[in-house]
Amino acid sequence: MTDKIRTILKEHGRLSKDATSLGEDEDLYQAGMTSHASVNVMLALEGEFDLEFPDHMLKRSVFESIAAIRGAIEELQG
């Protein structure tokens, strides 16, 4: 799952760093992800993992790191 998240971040995150070498807890917003880019990341994750982020998860902390994104997906997948 982490590799897929990294691929999506590389394609949609508009990061100033290489998504494949980012630390799992590294702050994605500090790495250059804008709020608009985070929407693209969210939509790409929904497509890849066939899920929908509910409103209460549409917040900064859910998309702030690879580990946070993985945690949110695992929660949604039950």
Binding site: H36, D55, H56, K59
Partner: peptide, 19 residues
């Protein structure tokens, strides 16, 4: 989109889950 993001900042709701 800029207006929605600016509103989140002006409302101090950046940390909340917002539709």
């Amino acid at each position: 989109f800029a207006a929605k993001e600016a509103a989140l900042k002006a409302l101090g709701l950046g940390g909340e889950g917002v539709d």
